[in-house]
């Protein structure tokens, strides 16, 4: 099972744009978990993260006529999620200014920086998606198995260890290894902007 398995499904773009229920259902099914997953990485409140993800689909629905390619759909969803996560974090930042501890504040600011640096420009995103898939394919077998189970099959480290008959430590080191390889492979498509200190 790969992360981007759904890219093989060809959405019928015209029925999507015409607002046909079934076309939209398909888009929802193939992307909902990803968008929620993305939001959860930046918003500690899970319910809020789900809300934001659902709003991204509502926005896509209202603007479906503006989407021009199948790949544009996912780029649109990620962009909408990014924008709303940022809005939420910024709003929250001031609301909690006086009660939050320093660590939480730093986490929040860092998350904002990361979100800001995402560019889901349609072309760039297509390239990114393909490169992530290629990079995943290049992982050593064990490493790929662990990473896929951990990231796409909602498995806990303990469960993976049991399933593959390896030590818990080995699960952790394989995830680390996967991250290091992916980072190396994707270095050119994940440009970090220069940060001001």
């Amino acid at each position: 099972m790969s992360f981007y398995d759904s890219r093989n499904i060809l959405y019928d773009l015209s029925s999507f744009k015409n607002g046909e229920e079934n076309a939209f259902k398909l888009v929802f099914e193939n992307n909902y978990e990803k968008i929620v997953g993305f939001c959860c990485q930046f918003i500690p409140d899970r319910e809020e993260a789900k809300n934001i993800a659902q709003q991204a689909f509502v926005k896509l629905w209202t603007n479906r006529e503006e989407v021009n390619t199948c790949n544009g759909i996912r780029a649109f969803l990620y962009t909408a999620a990014k924008t709303d996560c940022l809005n939420y974090l910024r709003h929250e930042k001031y609301k909690l200014n006086y009660q939050q501890n320093i660590l939480e504040k730093r986490e929040k600011l860092l998350n904002q920086e990361i979100l800001e640096s995402f560019k889901f420009d349609r072309l760039e995103y297509m390239e990114l998606e393909e490169m992530i898939q290629n990079a995943l394919d290049k992982l050593p077998e064990k490493c790929r198995q662990v990473f896929v189970k951990s990231r796409f099959e909602y498995k806990k480290n303990r469960e993976i260890a049991d399933e593959l008959g390896i030590a818990l430590k080995s699960v952790e080191s394989n995830i680390t290894r996967a991250l290091k390889i992916l980072r190396k492979e994707l270095k050119d498509v994940l440009p970090s902007v220069l940060w001001m200190f």
Binding site: C40, Q41, I114, R183
Partner: peptide, 12 residues
Amino acid sequence: EIKKIWALTSRE
């Protein structure tokens, strides 16, 4: 960079 990869390969 790591966090971006993590976020883009996340599923809930």
